[in-house]
Design a protein around this nucleic acid. Structure first.
Lengths: 145, 145
DNA sequence: GTTACTGCAAAGCTTTTGCATCCCT
DNA sequence: AGGGATGCAAAAGCTTTGCAGTAAC
């Protein structure tokens, strides 16, 4: 937890609890999820404190804010560039660590200064058996359970 | 507008106004944007009607709900699979129509039944001169304005 | 004539803000 | 000590819902 002091954050017990919960967390939790988890060990914890801490961490570059869930923000302690696999039924989000070297053709960059890219794969997770929403071509071989 | 009757929606004047605004629209408008635009021609229009119409169109598969903007939902009348270029300063969203055939290694699909993928490119649009937030390597040659 | 849509208001969520108190450094 | 963090409550967006009146089919 040294590194958090180094980036200029006061290490309060509340923050340590949040940091501990986030450490290595692969659930891409929402603010509410962080709150519920941390509150168990720390009953006086306030939701506003969670938001303020998440915001501070984001500001310092130690946390990623994901815009993957239409209903709320999700957070990811893994700040290295990576991609996601999203269950369109239960909204489970899984990290994908394969790198995709995607280049935008020069004539398609619309004069943007491009900084990075992110890939989102959509599908049904093993717990959400594929309901035939849209006829899926080419995906049947991946189908499972 | 025939196709909308065909999918089982009543064609009210309000809906026609919304459909007309969305037709070919490349702005990826929010519900509020649709409301403001349509209200000009249709002062009695209610925001709830906009939400309900957008929701109905989404339901019918004639509209995509984008989860690209952290603050609100954006909508896209282009329902064919495509990718986006996003300005991290002004949140402008531009369509990218190049196809990327992205395959997830079999050992990385986490037993998901994958339906599709979407790529998001991030950067600064021409109107938002790159402010040095993060040192950007390799992007300077694209820089402009 | 039915059924579904509209518009208004109210409510529901997520997220932000103000402010007095507290506590890390 | 001082400045930032906490916690509570209130407020601010965005979105949904309930319902009476109305219009499309």
């Amino acid at each position: 937890m040294e590194k958090y002091r180094d980036i200029g954050l006061k290490l309060t017990p509340q923050r340590l609890a949040i940091l501990h919960y986030l450490e290595g967390n692969k659930d891409h939790p929402s603010a509410e999820s962080v709150y519920r988890a941390v509150q168990k060990k720390f009953p006086t914890m306030s939701l506003a404190t969670v938001y303020s801490t998440l915001s501070a961490l984001k500001e310092k570059g130690s946390l990623l804010e994901l815009t993957i869930d239409p209903d709320k923000k999700r957070f990811d302690p893994e700040t290295r560039l990576h991609n996601h696999l999203i269950c369109i039924s239960c909204r489970r989000i899984v990290d994908i660590h394969g790198e995709y070297q995607l280049d935008l053709p020069d004539n398609a960059n619309h004069n943007f200064a491009i900084i990075g890219s992110q890939v989102e794969f959509y599908g049904f997770c093993p717990d959400c058996s594929p309901k035939q929403t849209t006829p899926v071509k080419e995906a049947s071989h991946v189908r499972r359970s």
